[in-house]
Amino acid sequence: MSLPKKKLLQAYRQMKTIREFEERAHAEIMNGQIAGFTHLYTGQEANAVGVCEHLNDEDTIISTHRGHGHCIAKGADVIGMMKELFGSSEGLCKGKGGSMHVADIEKGILGANGIVAGGPPISVGAALAARIRKNKRVAVSFSGDGSVNQGTCFEAMNLAVVLNVPAVFVIENNYYSEHTNIEYAVGCDDLKTRTEGFGFPVFVADGADFFSVFDAAGKAIDHARAGNGPAGVFAETGRFHGHFVGDPQHYRADGELDDLREHSCCLKRFREKMAESGEVSQEELDSIDAGVLALIEQSVAEAKAAARPTPEQVGNDVYISYGTG
């Protein structure tokens, strides 16, 4: 599949932005600058970008606890996101949500989500609105290999078929849910087939390869947008960090992480493909890298200098307040 050069550059820029955002967030957490529980998306960037490059601002996504990548890929303001992680009142959610709840409704980002499988039912609702309004929008929900075992996920998949709505279920299999491997937690041999059992097509992708995800997601999204009901994407992928920052990762095999970083890095793969095809030069990619690094540096500098929330802001945005004491 050949893509216009502009699209290629954009895809690479997005993946690189996610990578650097996550690596910098990791460093700032280790420095004690970012509080709370943070789950990094490093290693899985091609999944978010391969899907979101098919979407426009009117389409929606809903994400998970590992949400930074999906949000960036869907166009969230990177500086506003970094400010949110730092807990500033200038953050995308005014410091109320933090890493697990980054959202940007105007960009069609219905939020990261701290509840495993909290997202898919909500996405069915967004898809139902699109069906009723006949506006050709699609609603994408991201799930992990662990999240798909939750009842809410099953219910959402079945409801989407029953209602014939343009919901796209993207399953990123990074093989682990926290410290448990998919071998144990998914009872059947083949999660893709289990998902198809709900009654919609599921397209398989190599989650380390932007082009593979882009291709599979294109089929799923076209299917849904054309009014044929829900569709799925099943991508095999790997996360390069622990489940959360600080995870000792007892579950990994010896050498597993080195192997992942060496053989399943979407940025390396992209560069190799471009070197082969000659569509984009390595220098052009280098200059994207430099631009991304500058943006991330700026985001951290701005986040550190940004306004801090004040106590009276606790009670804003909650419709009703009651005095005590």
């Binding site: 106590p311 009670g315 009703i320 005590t324």
Partner: peptide, 26 residues
């Protein structure tokens, strides 16, 4: 007298959470 959190979800930002959870001073 009731000393409790305000009628809101728990905020993320450390400053906000410190104001949210009842303190020794309160």
């Amino acid at each position: 007298k009731q000393v409790c959190a305000p009628h809101s979800p728990t905020p993320f930002s450390p400053e906000l959470e410190a104001a949210y959870i009842p303190s020794v001073e309160r």
